[in-house]
Design a protein around this nucleic acid. Sequence first.
DNA 1: CTCCATCCATACGGTGCCGTATGGAATGAG
DNA 2: CTCATTCCATACGGCACCGTATGGATGGAG
Lengths: 182, 182
Amino acid sequence: MAATRTPRSSWIDAGLRALAAGGPDAVRIEPLAQALGVSKGGFYWHFDNRGALLEEMLDAWERISIEEAIAQVEQEGGDGRTRLRRLFALASARGDLLRIDLAVRDWARRDPAVAARLRRVDNRRADYLRALFGDFCADEGDVEARSLLVGALWIGNHFMAADHGARSRADVLELALRRLLA
Amino acid sequence: MAATRTPRSSWIDAGLRALAAGGPDAVRIEPLAQALGVSKGGFYWHFDNRGALLEEMLDAWERISIEEAIAQVEQEGGDGRTRLRRLFALASARGDLLRIDLAVRDWARRDPAVAARLRRVDNRRADYLRALFGDFCADEGDVEARSLLVGALWIGNHFMAADHGARSRADVLELALRRLLA
DNA sequence: CTCCATCCATACGGTGCCGTATGGAATGAG
DNA sequence: CTCATTCCATACGGCACCGTATGGATGGAG
């Protein structure tokens, strides 16, 4: 075992940054190498090709996303409502993860393999949401509808650009969230 | 005036198709020409460069989106609730327009000029939503929250991949929509 | 110190696309 | 028919990136 100057993880991290900034088409080897201050020589020692990097980027994203959800579960408690609030706040706080998440979601619309990964992650998150809503909602259909609505609110918020007069987007978001937690 | 074998609109339409299928990076001149069965020779007669095509594509999208909204308004009537239902159904029906819309939304996250256009379109749509919800909602904050929620539901739905057990996505969507129209 | 695994620089050929130049084909006006 | 306008084919130079090949550099194991 010798040293590891620019390990795999460096390439994956840089790739995820590029993905967040410009989508999958922006993940190019030579610019990545330049951003890391090296030449692309080492890249092809770590990875077979560009596709292999994309795969491992998605692996990392999937793992992080699930760990993240588990970390939410194991957070200090509270009832369903307060935990939902904390979840929503934390999900918006990690801006870097959020941007990766949004990029992957758009990517999934074009690539079935990515869509399958997204499905796994979203099913995990949906399970968690169902559990939290189930804490204070009796009807199962209601739980399902509210889970979809908070998910859509969280995602859709970042894909809409409308103004709200005197109110800020955060204000309206708060109003909407309050509706869903009623 | 001579003939117009492959007019501007052909290039714009083809560009919008490519945009819907693969995002802005997928709008390349030479593949577009091949798809149209011509060489790229004519393209550079119509347009200065690739950027000019992207601009005109966005012009067309913006115009269509607003006309589309106006067409909804001038549809045969009904109260706010039924018109909201019709709006939601029609917005999902035009799959080609929907895919362009989603692509533009992701694009807007990276390009401020696109974001400005999206803002114009979304403000128009938000105005319409406000008017419809105002038909049966007294509280103004409630109107604002519901408008954001239906918008987010419509968009977010296409960026989420979760399953819902026995229920189909359409079922849950119906449940969520019913909640918002209550 | 030696040696080997690890990582990097450089150079190369290949590909796909951009934008330009130039000559020509098609089409309606007169 | 004549002719100018409109559109297209082809060829070209340039650029950015991919993936490969090859020869090192670097640093820990022994």
